[in-house]
Design a protein around this nucleic acid. Structure first.
Lengths: 226, 226
DNA sequence: TTACTAAGTGTATTATACACACTATATAAA
DNA sequence: TTTATATAGTGTGTATAATACACTTAGTAA
């Protein structure tokens, strides 16, 4: 914050928020993309985003964008990084505060959505070419997700209220990109009481039924998971 | 990034960068503060900062502010967090991208500085009341510093080119706020080859002289230090 | 009753973290 | 020149955590 105004200073910089919304769906880590409907980027895929309004905080702007432009509410959300390269938008100078969000796989997406011509989940290993610097935002988001999985309980944002330990382990494996040992994983998870038994059983065809668990806390919390 | 303009949308939000510059001086973790010279916040202490210009990236703005308003160049610098509360500045809506910087203790500060009426290092445990949300920024900065000390080599930003292992350990102790075991600390530091011997000796009065070391790399690098 | 599928469980080995105290080398003072 | 003083420098044993690894269990379907 400065107290003097410079020639060439701020108010012509547009301030946006963009959201990298991740989910584990059909065995893959996916990110939610929208197709831009008009303007010089029409037809290109991008992260859902929007300009920050003068009467809302950054966090509020991110929540609003998630709700209006991706149809998701009440999900795990945290600030990721501010991207401010001079040439990131050919329409003029802009700065984007990127957010990082997690949703579980059974959340239904709206089939059509305000402002965009299409909306879809994309496998993060098979992304189309993205508009702006959004490929970089996705990359930073994945890095954050991988790191945080190891020292926090954010996985709760990706799973349903109740889940089996195998499902939990699979989420970890997909995001980290490598397999984990079943016994060591379960030992660790139980040691740190990340989850508690739901007291229910899920039958799943011709195999032994699995116990269901839920997260002991569904608020962000630091724990040494791996 | 969005492609449509909203009523009430961006360009009246001023975009600033503010820098939390830390150093370990005289046995304490200090942060560089400046005194605001005019306007409604005149006389208050704050972090050095300034508005982002339309022709510079966020990182460039941070570097410029550090140089112009704190007189420091070529130091460790990384983005910390974007602060965007609606009421953070009584003069009107603003968003600040905060940066985190480290300098070593023998860097001379300019005695007077552009835009501000005073400049000084303050012990982070004895801060005056700060303008805006700068107290929060300092808090987040200290947290980042403590965390990063454990898994990166950023301490190089706080030490001279050559230093003794005792000096290095002292920097860690001051920032972490607790003592470390000398033998375990040195063992760890050597195991991960964080530093290399400079091949010199520093005599220091009536005691055994100490070997001098330097960091093996002076670029940010991930290493398990503690 | 047999075959199939995924769930669930324990132990031994290795690596890492931690606790802990004395010796070495210089200067300064007696 | 001897002694005191101050900080540098070093190793080992113990406890804890991380890893590697394979069989039994409980259900469904043929």
């Amino acid at each position: 914050m400065s107290k003097t105004s410079h020639p060439n200073a701020t108010p012509s910089i547009r301030l946006a928020v963009d959201a990298a919304i991740f989910s584990v769906i059909e065995g893959a880590l996916k990110v939610l993309l929208v197709r831009i409907g008009s303007g010089p980027y029409a037809g290109k895929w991008a992260l859902p985003g929007g300009l920050v309004r003068t009467d809302e905080s950054l966090d509020q702007a991110a929540e609003r964008v998630l709700s209006e432009k991706a149809g998701v509410d009440d999900i795990y959300l945290e600030q990721l990084y501010a991207f401010g390269g001079v040439d990131r938008d050919i329409r003029g100078r802009s700065v984007s505060v990127a957010y990082f969000a997690l949703v579980n796989s059974d959340r239904r997406l709206p089939s059509t959505i305000e402002y965009y011509s299409d909306i879809a989940w994309y496998d993060t290993t098979k992304l189309p070419k993205l508009a702006f610097d959004h490929a970089k935002i996705v990359e930073v988001g994945i890095e954050r997700l991988r790191n945080k999985l190891g020292y926090s309980n954010i996985a709760y944002g990706l799973l349903h209220k109740e889940f089996t330990l195998t499902e939990l382990q699979t989420v970890y494996e997909i995001i980290l990109g490598h397999e984990l040992d079943k016994r060591n994983f379960r030992k660790k998870i139980q040691d740190i009481d990340l989850v508690k038994e739901a007291g229910k059983i899920r039958k799943s065809g011709q195999s032994r039924p699995a116990r269901l668990y839920s997260f002991s806390e569904r608020k962000p919390k630091m724990v040494d998971v791996l």
